[in-house]
Write a protein that binds this DNA or RNA. Sequence first.
DNA 1: CAGTGTGAATATCTTCACAGCA
DNA 2: TGCTGTGAAGATATTCACACTG
Lengths: 217, 217
Amino acid sequence: MPHLKHDRIPRATISRLAIYVQELEGMEQQGVKVVSSEKLANACGVNPSQIRKDLAYFGEFGVRGVGYYVFELKEAIKQSLGLDKTWNVVLVGVGNLGRALLRHGVLRKRGFIIVGAFDCDPFKIGEEIAGLEVICSSKLPAKTNELYVEIGIITTPPERAQRAANYLLEAGIKGIVNFAPARINAPSNVSVEYVDFIHNLFSVAFNITQNQAKGLI
Amino acid sequence: MPHLKHDRIPRATISRLAIYVQELEGMEQQGVKVVSSEKLANACGVNPSQIRKDLAYFGEFGVRGVGYYVFELKEAIKQSLGLDKTWNVVLVGVGNLGRALLRHGVLRKRGFIIVGAFDCDPFKIGEEIAGLEVICSSKLPAKTNELYVEIGIITTPPERAQRAANYLLEAGIKGIVNFAPARINAPSNVSVEYVDFIHNLFSVAFNITQNQAKGLI
DNA sequence: CAGTGTGAATATCTTCACAGCA
DNA sequence: TGCTGTGAAGATATTCACACTG
């Protein structure tokens, strides 16, 4: 566990760190060894001081007059984010989106290993997807205790999201990523993140409408 | 086009409006006719004045002493967001995620109709998914001119995201939702939104690590 | 001297508190 | 009376500007 210089880290910083890691990995692949906050900022579409400030929450990683060593910085950020380990994940709701996530190699590549897939539909139970057998949701708490699972992903329809969450909470899960378009209730020591890309389509639609109104197009 | 009382609307407001619409639709289905900012705030997990302030950017929709009429408010927000019409969308990159989006009914239900699917992989070209034939990406600009398309979705691997974006820009698209984990360059009059749920998993991982360090778990 | 690390200044967002209207 | 709409206050987040160091 890295010691934090400040104890409250802005939410926004966390999501930017994820972008920095992404770009740093790209640079690493291209053989870039050192990067300045300005270059990294350009790649990430943010302000250079933003990057320096974000990094300052976790320590001093740079070398004055030089910049940051790409590999070292990437590793340091990953450690700060808790990505220097792999996380076991279970998924509830094997619809189109759930299937895509199960098959999507990216999760595993990023250190999130899906070790269980659950659904309440009898037609789906027993089906095998990406090497995992779909199990009845009601068995989730029992099954999850066998594995060491800390994170749950919800990809059910909205009306079943809370029930899925309850199973996950019963299983003692510590964090939830909810793809269902519905708020869920969870105790405050369980971290809940919402993913809903419809919001992004809404934003784009709004921006287009605005641009048109301004006569930019 | 609704006239805006203030000309600059915070980004954060836009993404909350999407949540309000979601909850209002839920309430409508349950037969709720009127809602106060406090009740809606509880459902959305935000502060009541936040809601009143957000709505004030677009006009006065409430009735003092009563609240908001659910249907009217929902319609007013949708109009403000430019969702009082349907949007034609094309998708580039028919991998796991692209397929899930093509099959996912939610997009259509929300007014975003995918009218074209493109990929550069010869093995995928010609395949039919959800009633759409996969077409070679290089034909995108020509094909798109036939249809009336304003929004493009990118679901390619990161290294092909910029090329996909270039095709979309060439086709005169006005907004892009990019699911590939890579920044893309586009002129400033084209609205670009990034979707990357790995970020949300990172956040959850970080929060769990933090909570454990604090001894909350 | 180039580029970090950081306090101070600015900008943005959220919440409070209450006047004013149905 | 109850709840909206909103200016003012407070909290956060971003950017600037520069001292400082390898």
